[in-house]
Design a binder for these strands. Structure first.
Length: 476
RNA sequence: GUCCCCAUCGUCUAGCGGUUAGGACACCGGCCUUUCAAGCCGGCGACACGGGUUCGAUUCCCGUUGGGGAUACCA
């Protein structure tokens, strides 16, 4: 039994972010791989932005991805007391101090310093004033060492850190008495016994300060592992505005959770030449040593490929259950489970890259009213096709059994009767007549799935369309 | 501005001093074929640059360039 403990600490601000999802996945995988414990902690250190609702959304996203946690969810706001105690301790030991500088003053001094070519760090004005609790409105600052190295051995980036002199005394408690993120994470990670802090590289520069905090709190450092950023089309950090980042959106677009986790795990991690990883395999193979150091661009095409890969593998029942909502949306009503629909779904597997795409490709089976693709109609439902349509209709009407084999025979006989025309000459007009468009699974399967009555009806309708067209002069 | 990080095909990456620099996605071509797919076969395509170190650098070191991140009483 290992004592490894990892945690995922999202801030609940609306939805589960793609980057967060990968961080969660890596933390989960690392814990699973080593038989450790995966802790979930909601980082709601108040911002008016965090709500219970968005917290729910985040949890829902994790569950959908299949990432289960062992402890939590804890909420940082519920740990106020621990944070306050830690701050009180630091104050008592003079490792932190009260500061009365106003925001405006701070801002002005910083700008002046910057203008002078300085670094813009806090100038330490209140550092040695020895302000007491009765000094009025004040913040609390950490007394960061003024020299020496604040470093750590990063599991991904190797030796990291910066000179303490470049840090400045950071605020750890606001004027209103609430603790700041940096203080809260460190206190929580210490008290929750987190052994491995695995998080996005955007926290990398922040870590020096946290190292200072660990030292001030006399706590041993955890292993830090910073994950290279996932970037968007622009090459910049994923942003809500520019990029598709909501896991919920991915779900609604018909992506599979197994495709998403597979995609995500390969954004920054590799295992030789392997590409396909189930969640179980990830839990078995994941290692921090194989995490890369450069940022990765999220490629939607790769996701689509993975989606199709998993769609092709899904057991029938599972597939049906998952596309069902999408089918119902396309149809605009409830969809019943039946054999012919199941058959169609199977044929659509290798034609669909998402569940949404699959549902859309099934439209002709779902609704009685067909939408015709104008271009396809123009190209295939022309007077020249009339004899074929008529002959096929007649042939099919008499069919004893409505099966692929029988349908195929009818087509062959009709082709011969019409003077050995190519099968395509027959198939395309029929396809357009029954599906409304130029693409579908094999024509015999398509007709079998549609059923006798709908097929004959749609054929009849197509004939009237062609006839109407023949009458309107010069249309062909 | 300051600090920090990164750098192999378009993209994700393998490589951990000696390889015809490998795979996958995408793209292009062919086969198959009643359409679209799928499948199969093939093709295009990369070590950013300059110095070192070394018998030998994609690989190690330094610099340049380019990209990114952090610089909040946000997380």
């Amino acid at each position: 039994m290992s004592s490894i403990r990892t945690r995922f600490a999202p801030s609940p601000t609306g939805f589960l972010h793609l980057g967060s999802a990968r961080t969660a996945l890596y933390n989960w995988a690392y814990a699973r791989r080593h038989g450790g414990c995966f802790v979930l902690r909601i980082e709601d250190t108040d911002l008016e932005r965090s709500t219970r609702e968005s917290e729910e959304t985040v949890l829902e996203g994790l569950e959908w991805l299949g990432l289960d946690w062992d402890e939590g969810p804890f909420r940082q706001t519920e740990r106020r007391e621990a944070h306050e105690q830690a701050i009180a301790g630091l104050l008592a030991q003079e490792k932190a101090y009260r500061c009365q500088c106003s925001r405006e003053d701070l801002e002005a001094r910083k700008e002046a310093d910057l203008a002078r070519g300085g670094s813009g760090l806090y100038d330490g004005r209140c550092r040695d004033l020895g302000l007491g609790p009765d000094c009025g409105t004040h913040v609390v600052r950490l007394r960061v060492p003024q020299e020496g190295m604040l470093g750590w051995e990063d599991a991904v980036f190797g030796p990291s850190g910066q000179d303490a002199g470049q840090l400045g005394d950071a605020i750890i408690r606001r004027g209103d008495g609430t603790p700041l993120y940096n203080l809260a994470v460190v206190v929580d990670d210490i008290e929750m016994g987190i052994t491995h802090v695995i998080r996005g590289a955007d926290h990398h520069p922040n870590t020096s300060l946290q190292v200072a905090l660990y030292q001030a709190l006399d706590a041993p450092l955890p292993i830090f592992a910073h994950l290279p950023l996932i970037v968007g089309e622009s090459g910049k950090k994923l942003s809500k505005r520019r990029d598709n980042v909501s896991i919920q959106d991915f779900r609604d677009e018909g992506h599979l959770p197994e495709a998403l986790t597979n995609w995500l795990v390969r954004l920054g991690w590799s295992h030789g030449d392997d590409e396909i990883f189930s969640l179980d395999e990830i839990a078995q193979l994941f290692s921090l040593e194989s995490v890369g150091r450069s940022s990765a661009r999220a490629d939607p095409a790769k996701l689509a490929w993975l989606d199709q890969h998993y769609i092709k593998q899904l057991p029938g029942d599972d597939l049906f259950a998952r596309v069902r909502p999408h089918l119902e949306r396309v149809k605009g009503g409830p969809v019943e489970d039946d054999e012919s629909l199941r058959k169609l779904l199977d044929l659509l597997r290798e034609r669909s890259r998402t569940l949404v795409e699959m549902a859309e490709l099934a439209h002709w089976k779902l609704s009685d009213t067909l939408e015709y693709d104008e271009k396809a109609v123009k190209k295939h439902l022309r007077p020249a096709a009339l004899p074929a349509l008529l002959a096929l209709g007649q042939g099919m009407r008499k069919l004893p059994d409505w099966t692929v084999a029988e349908l195929e025979k009818t087509f062959e006989e009709t082709a011969a009767a019409l003077g050995d025309v190519k099968l395509g000459k027959l198939a395309q007009p029929v396809r357009v007549a029954v599906t409304g468009g130029p693409n579908s699974p094999g024509i015999f399967e398509t007709l079998e799935i549609l059923g006798r009555e709908p097929t004959l009806e749609r054929l009849k309708h197509a004939v009237t369309v062609v006839e109407a067209r023949a009458e309107s002069a010069g249309s062909d």
